[in-house]
Nucleic acid binder design. Sequence first.
DNA 1: CGCTCGGTTGACCCGTTTCAAGTAACGTGG
DNA 2: CCACGTTACTTGAAACGGGTCAACCGAGCG
Lengths: 246, 246
Amino acid sequence: MRNNISVLKKYIASQAISKCASCSLRELCLPVGLDAHETEILSDLIEHKCKIGRGEYLLRAGMRFKSLYAVRNGFFKSYILDSEGRQQVTGFYMTGELLGLDAISAEIHTCETVALEDSEVCEVPFERLEEISCSIPLLMHQFHKIMSREIVQDHRVMVLLGNMKAEERIAAFLLNLSDRFEKRGYSATSFVLRMTREEIGSYLGLKLETVSRSFSKLQDEGMITINNKHVELHDIHRLTRKISGY
Amino acid sequence: MRNNISVLKKYIASQAISKCASCSLRELCLPVGLDAHETEILSDLIEHKCKIGRGEYLLRAGMRFKSLYAVRNGFFKSYILDSEGRQQVTGFYMTGELLGLDAISAEIHTCETVALEDSEVCEVPFERLEEISCSIPLLMHQFHKIMSREIVQDHRVMVLLGNMKAEERIAAFLLNLSDRFEKRGYSATSFVLRMTREEIGSYLGLKLETVSRSFSKLQDEGMITINNKHVELHDIHRLTRKISGY
DNA sequence: CGCTCGGTTGACCCGTTTCAAGTAACGTGG
DNA sequence: CCACGTTACTTGAAACGGGTCAACCGAGCG
């Protein structure tokens, strides 16, 4: 009896914490601006907490599109595979960010998406999201903002790839991560890179050796310390100046 | 009297042809899949036919976001201006394509958008578009597809900027234009470039001299003829092979 | 008609890639 | 828990592609 109650309690607790209403990411994710009732409706259609182990694929290119996925915790990369098997990383995704937006247009996923650490996602069935956003204008609007933000972010990468030198790209990359960590309540100046030099290079249009050299250069100049995957930003101002002009 | 009637007739005619229902771009633009009644509702909120002369700006970075714009005819470029005044072209837009999607997220336009030839656009007030798409699910869905398509297109540019060599970029660029012209009923193999070499270079992450050299090279290899702004594609297959692998 | 702007081409230079060697961290199985 | 093999990372030297600088040409426009 005792035991049963404790199991039940645990079950209720796990349900509770997985709801949007009590999710720490509310303010970064789809429910921004929704009231309690609306949040509940949204929450009900979402499959909360799918676990994805490190190295596991959440999405494969060619998969039929059914759902978007919100990162609940963890870290993902998305990439496009060319016919010779090379990767072009199209983005890194952290807590509160929405995966799979590229697939809406053709109803087929175009990116491979893999967890770079043990992660959890919330599955958002897209058809149902569209249905309920008819009756929750704020949700629809928030969704549009999220899609638009993805476009803005992609434009930033285009500027980076089109105009910046290697060191500038790395500086921009670190500052972008720093920003996003800070928004999520983590340190803006000290964090761990979840991806390899090769993955960074693929994202930034550089070879891994160039990434490594650029890190070393920024370290020599005293702006950062880099120790394997651990980064410390010592002089955000100077890093920013390095890319100012873009 | 005679005169008045003729003026009236002209007015009615101009109204009629400017409606979505009779627009030749229906199948490329927002009304895809809508029935007559729905098309009418959409059409009513759109300000049809704003003329933008060559060299005039449709949007400026920093402008408050109010509307999206569908290109009715003509040709536009969008670009981001860095603090030193350099341009990074983020896209070229032709008939039926939707401008201003980047501005939804921050409610501020981030791109400068200028007509490269005398053009006309339809203004789509965004708040009202969101309102009516609550009652026209197909319209909402079509809008989501258009945004998603923009993301996919940006990803393609990222691959191009991240991995391809100069000549490959030019080949990819020409094939992309060819495709889009063909979809609009124009020749896939013979068309006029509306933009300068410098603008092409900015879009493709190359200097104008490199663009020029790459055109010459492709011409020497017999794949294209290029005469000022006029291009002929002689061997689409070979051009495609040049970029296959991406 | 002449000026300006856009485009082409050549020569040289610089930054990134490529190739190569060596080292450090990590995960696995004994 | 250690030894091993594997993978990730760093650094150097040489090669190469695209950038830069410069001269010239041609088309379009006032």
